[in-house]
Design a binder for these strands. Structure first.
Lengths: 225, 225
DNA sequence: TACTGTGAAATCTTTCACAGCA
DNA sequence: TGCTGTGAAAGATTTCACAGTA
């Protein structure tokens, strides 16, 4: 029973009506989207699963399987129409509506994330930072994202119609803020806090744990010799 | 044949002599280590796999399996000795020697990473940042990490005995820098560049792709309703 | 008794291989 | 011919269940 023990890597999630889609598949959809965006810019009209597979060192059957979970987008003998497939994936990933993101914690990491390009593109917007430090509240990040006091969390999340919260606070402070955000209606959280958080009912959490990644590399180095 | 198609999530790697250990197992070892560190500080002497499992919503058999890949550390009827198990894991993860980390790219993200607490602890030290911008070269991060010119990359990596490189440069510039670092003897890379890099022979890469995480959340939001 | 260590089963993911269609 | 879509096989990971032991 391969469920999702670590909350990372291969895992599945069941939804109301649809079938369960693994996290690996979702991840690859994002990768395909990038590829298709580049191809579309370059004016390429069609691409085969084999060609895409070569770019990413993937198996072409896997790409076809990933895509057929959502429909039959290809043309036998030809491949996939690039702009068409791209727009399908944009829709599948829910990037056709605006994602409004708030970051809790305006430390080094929070500020860097606020101004991170990858976050401010493709229908995604960082609208506000939160912190408790009086000298930060009222200021803006270099990129112009305003910093509000955490006391204003619930109200601001609602007023700004925030969909996704990124947690970038010190260890130990994540769970309480997660619960406050959830109570204010947020249902998706990107967690940078190096603690294991318990997701409130109906809330999705993705963990980005930099130390675990670093230790994973240390492990590989230690093993090889 | 579940190999490692995305370079993230569940994957295995074979080493010279030992058996293949999955990336999931490695990730969990880091999690156990944190837990044990806390327990040791709190003066707890022993812990059972069941107790640990409850803390992380994991299955206790999985924890036991993870640990027995590396030895028989437990005592039947009792559990595991906390300080002893902790020191075993430190050794397994290779955290008993110093990890010297360099970050290429002193933009928002690179600077934030340089001063990130999680990176500067437990035998891990950020020793240098690299950039090409003349106004950055010669300065220091807030935390005091010096910024050198990328022209000095190879020499500095060797002089500073860097084990691990973090890539935090704009899209398109990752592959060339990866290859230069590899040629200078670096064998482990933490990649923040949103491109798929091709690892040179013998080089381990871990990808941290923030946009993919965000899009994964967008997907979940789009699905539920 | 209470726990570890582990073979076997269950589950999930990826790859193979090919039918079927443009 | 060349590609997609897909059933079946292969492989990997997780869980179950229990023998064995301190």
């Amino acid at each position: 029973m391969a469920k999702n023990p670590t909350g990372k890597g291969s895992s599945s999630r069941r939804e109301g009506s649809g079938r369960a889609i693994s996290e690996s598949t979702t991840e690859r959809l994002s990768i395909y989207l990038r590829c298709l965006t580049q191809l579309e810019r370059a004016g390429v009209e069609t691409i085969s699963s084999k060609e895409m597979a070569q770019r990413f060192q993937l198996n072409s059957a896997l790409i076809r399987k990933d895509l057929t979970y959502f429909g039959e987008f290809g043309m036998r003998g030809v491949g996939y129409n690039v702009p068409e497939l791209r727009s399908h994936i944009v829709q599948i990933l829910g990037l056709d509506r605006e994602l409004r993101v708030a970051i809790i914690g305006a430390g080094n990491l929070g500020q860097a994330l606020a101004d991170y390009r990858g976050f401010n593109s493709e229908g995604c917007r960082i609208v506000v930072l939160f912190d408790v430090a009086p000298e930060k509240v009222g200021t803006q990040s270099r990129g112009g994202v305003p910093v509000r006091h955490v006391d204003m969390l619930e109200q601001t999340l609602r007023d700004e119609k925030v969909n996704i919260v990124a947690l970038a606070v010190p260890s130990g402070q994540g769970q309480a803020l997660l619960e406050r955000a959830a109570a204010a209606g947020v249902r998706a959280v990107l967690n940078f806090v190096p603690d294991r958080l318990r997701p409130p009912e109906g809330v999705f959490i993705r963990n980005v744990d930099l130390k675990i990644q670093l230790e994973g590399l240390a492990f590989q180095l230690a093993r090889v010799q």
